[in-house]
């Protein structure tokens, strides 16, 4: 894995970093990165995490020595295919809407006997450690490759999660008065050279969900949307969202439902 990171970094450097890129050429930068991404996706490092996740899904683990094969991701116990693109959704057994990662955590607690505290302690990948949940979510996501996003809005709870997520999206607060919409509410904006998708524009909503979970070149680690939301709030100068909390599920409901109908291409590659 380590060597692969170095190879990736070197290749990325050759593609992007070797010459200073003028801002007027941002589209060239983006185009170059897209080319590089296409090459990388033929041997996407995310596949290694999918394999690890599949093994973790099937292995008896935790204090209860159980596998996750009875975990109900919304389509019935053990059904993985299509589950990723049909979450967040309402789960009657817990009486709340859950995104995929929240549901996996729920199953690891109820079926395997892990505690929330141990799973929430270091929930995100570092250069030296990838949490099991990340690999499991990557495995589940890969089983929806080629399917359309279809996060349901079929009951009051799911519709409420969407509206709450939308309200959170526009909520200005924090040391710098920012909301999600401050950066993601208009077309064609950039931070430095990074293009910002406008999530209030239905045509761009897919950019919020495609490529996640993603293998991130920066640091060479695998990340899920839970991490992405966490790091957005860090840069928004907010306090930290609690892991797999309702606030994040609501925001993910807003982003995913807006992207419904887009074909999911599987775990991807991120800058």
């Amino acid at each position: 894995m380590k060597r692969r990171n170095i190879v990736c970094a070197a290749a990325l450097g050759a593609a992007l970093g070797a010459t200073p890129v003028a801002a007027q050429d941002t589209d060239t930068t983006t185009a170059e990165f897209e080319k590089f991404r296409a090459v990388m996706e033929e041997a996407n490092p995310a596949e290694l995490f999918e394999l690890k996740g599949e093994e973790l899904w099937r292995t008896r683990r935790g204090p209860k020595n159980a596998s996750l094969e009875k975990c109900d991701l919304g389509l019935g116990p053990g059904v993985v295919k299509g589950a990723y693109v049909q979450t967040p959704r309402y789960f009657p057994d817990v009486g709340r809407v859950m995104d995929i990662e929240a549901r996996v955590v729920h199953c690891m607690i109820t079926l395997q006997g892990f505690t929330y505290e141990e799973l929430a302690k270091q929930p995100f990948s570092t250069e030296t450690r990838t949490p099991d949940v990340v690999s499991i979510v990557t495995f589940i996501a890969a089983q929806s490759k080629g399917m359309k996003f279809d996060a349901p809005q079929s009951n009051a709870q799911e519709r409420e999660a969407y509206e709450l997520g939308k309200a959170i999206f526009f909520h200005r607060a924090g040391a710098w008065d920012l909301s999600c919409a401050s950066c993601h509410g208009a077309d064609g904006k950039r931070i430095r050279t990074q293009q910002l998708p406008n999530f209030t524009n239905p045509q761009q909503a897919a950019r919020g969900v495609l490529g996640w979970p993603g293998y991130r070149m920066t640091g060479g680690v695998m990340h899920t949307l839970q991490w992405r939301m966490n790091d957005c709030f860090r840069q928004q100068r907010f306090p930290e969202p609690k892991y797999v909390s309702e606030a994040i599920t609501a925001l993910l409901t807003y982003l995913t439902v807006n992207a419904n109908g887009t074909v999911y291409k599987g775990p991807g590659i991120k800058r």
């Binding site: 709450l164 607060a173 100068r237 907010f238 306090p239 309702e246 606030a247």
Partner: peptide
């Protein structure tokens, strides 16, 4: 919900959500 589901970390204290 934000006040319930967020926590202080480092210099980013909860009063930022007021």
């Amino acid at each position: 919900v934000l006040k319930r589901d967020f926590q202080a970390r480092g210099i980013a204290t909860m009063d930022r959500l007021d």
